[in-house]
Design a protein around this nucleic acid. Structure first.
Length: 341
DNA sequence: TTCCGACAGTGGGGTCGCAAT
DNA sequence: ATTGCGACCCCACTATCGGAA
């Protein structure tokens, strides 16, 4: 038994499988849940909003960065490639998230997108968007595939294997109090938490051994129009959403999911009956052949992850109609409103 | 029998690059 | 030169089916 694996429990040592380093391991994915919990058999990590990257550091000491869909990302993050070459032993596969932070220290996907286009080291140095690689798992080390070992065992080997210096960061976790940590996370403006079953092996699929506790935003919007359905879809494609700012309707993007077939048909019929030619929006109205505008009087509840820079919703989904709210009272909830007459 | 996981299909914002206009 | 489209990232959700529990 090698020194590296000697640090594992006897069960984990048995689970480690000696084999050549694989070219590709399908990344494990988390399932979304709305029921948060505290359980001592689980650990809780900060959920970072960035790009998933699996890094292969070969026996020759070369680093290959792969996206979730097997695309090579070395050109996007040359400084991460170099950091892995310098600080990770050869013959290791690690799993993590590449992120960029905004001024409030919140992982910011829009900022990261500005960095994804970088294609060499000079450009990376010149970019003012700094990226970090938060590692949270180790799949292969010291000639062994350790995906059948427990999460705790893999994390232990991960922590000891690398020299932890920026831009490489170890993803810390809490061993208890999932619920209070979740509330803390949302107050800080984090994207949420990932809860992981501490003794679970690494599954090459979406698994309920990893669960997303996402912090959600939710508010009402005015339905201002709809798009035509495509393919087998019935009723309508998406709803055009708006809110009032200075008594003008501002476009907040579209929502196209969260409906079952019955709702698509029913609501689609209702929208047809209140359709109109002119846009209810202010001068920044969307336009297009497949858009039908409606009289802005129906209000719906929408859950989403965040506002984008253009006043659009990210990851929106329809929760239901609101009958108890007047359309004219719908504002962006983060904006302070003057009293309306 | 019921439930769960995997897939396909629909929809979202944003970015880039290339082809058609 | 501008526009449109697909391919990437990040997703949520519904409907369906077959196998596990």
């Amino acid at each position: 038994m090698t020194d590296v694996l000697a640090r594992l429990s006897s069960d984990d040592r048995e689970a480690a499988k000696r084999e050549d380093m694989p070219d590709w391991l399908t990344p494990m994915k988390a399932k979304l849940t709305h029921e948060q919990f505290s359980d001592p058999d689980w650990v809780y990590e900060r959920k970072l909003d960035g790009e998933r990257v699996i890094a292969y550091v070969t026996q020759n000491g070369e680093a290959r960065l792969c996206s979730r869909n097997k695309k090579c990302l070395n050109k996007s993050y040359p400084e991460l490639e170099q950091a892995l070459v310098d600080n990770c032993p050869p013959g290791v596969i690690v799993d993590g998230e590449v992120v960029a932070f905004n001024d409030d220290d919140i992982s910011d996907f829009q900022l990261l997108q500005a960095r994804m286009k970088v294609s060499n080291r000079d450009e990376a140095r010149a970019s003012n968007v700094q990226v970090y690689f938060y590692l949270f798992d180790c799949l292969y080390i010291d000639g062994h595939n350790i995906t059948n070992c427990s999460l705790r065992g893999r994390k232990k080997l991960l922590k000891e294997a690398l020299q932890w210096t920026d831009p490489l960061r170890f993803t810390a976790h809490k061993n208890e109090d999932g619920i209070s940590y979740y509330h803390e996370a949302c107050e800080k403006g984090w994207e949420g938490l990932i809860a992981k079953r501490a003794n679970a092996r690494y599954a090459h699929s979406r698994s309920s051994d990893w669960l997303k506790f996402k912090c959600l935003m939710q508010q009402e919007f005015v339905i201002c129009g709809f798009t035509q359905p495509e393919g087998e879809r019935v009723g309508f494609g998406a709803l055009l959403l708006g809110f009032y700012r200075n008594k003008q309707l501002v476009y907040a993007g579209d929502v196209g999911t969260g409906f079952d077939d019955a709702t698509l048909k029913e609501l689609g019929g209702r929208l047809e009956s209140i359709s109109r030619e002119t846009s209810p929006f202010d001068k920044n109205s969307p336009s297009g052949d497949d858009i039908t505008f409606v009289t802005p009087k129906l209000v719906c509840e929408i859950a989403f992850t965040e506002w984008t820079q253009n006043d659009n919703l990210r990851h929106p989904r329809f929760l239901g109609l609101r009958r108890d709210k007047k359309a004219s009272k719908v504002h962006k909830e983060t904006e302070t409103q003057k009293a309306e007459s």
